[in-house]
Amino acid sequence: MGFLLEARNVTKTFGGLTAVDNVSIGVKSGEVLAIVGDNGAGKSTLIKMISGVYSPDAGSFYFDDKQVKIEHPRDSLGLGIETIYQDLALAENLNVYSNIFLGREQTKRLLGLIEVLDHSYMYSESRKILERLDIKIPALKSKISTLSGGQRQAVAISRSIYWNARVLIMDEPTAALGIAEQRKVLDLVRSLKQHGIGVIIISHQMHDVFSVADRIVVMRRGQKVADTKRDETNTDEIVKYIVGAETVVT
């Protein structure tokens, strides 16, 4: 099928509730896939399965057309699937480059014996990746707590890209941002496409979805109710799917 990452027939239940019911989705390299749906439609559960936070009760994952196991965040990270959650998962008390390298800090050996953090390496590598993505953050030694929302988002994205993300999952990337910053983040998503990365975006904002997505998947009550190319649909149609077509008089 040519998908870079594919989830086939995945199901997840909690107690008596089926949060995701036999859903299949896939994203290609250099493609932006948007997943939309009402609150509680199962979007979050779906991406949490892809990123290994939940393991599915049924279904399978394919990466590069080979079946893979994703049972732990480590598994998906190992495949090159990076997830940026709404809260960005940045340590506010650490600086920019420390966050880019969080959990995978570069070390060097002091006197050939003791492993210490290699600050200058992490600093210069971070500088490079930010330049490559054309992100402007004045001081890489600034703590995250001093940055704006858009800058934080950019740091989170840079972190993923630096670690060779091949698939990037973004949960409501523009939700907490001002207008200007929203545009910058969407520009960044477009440039990720150019780098050949498969992007999955969860969003409520139809405007964002239509401005960056190549394909749109609609979830409703745990099921996939639509999977269409952006050019073959429009906002009204998507909204109808979201609220449930049968209740909409056409």
Partner: peptide, 14 residues
Amino acid sequence: MSKSKQEPVVLSEY
């Protein structure tokens, strides 16, 4: 998320 048909089950478990 709530599914109406499931509710009795949940309640009895509770």
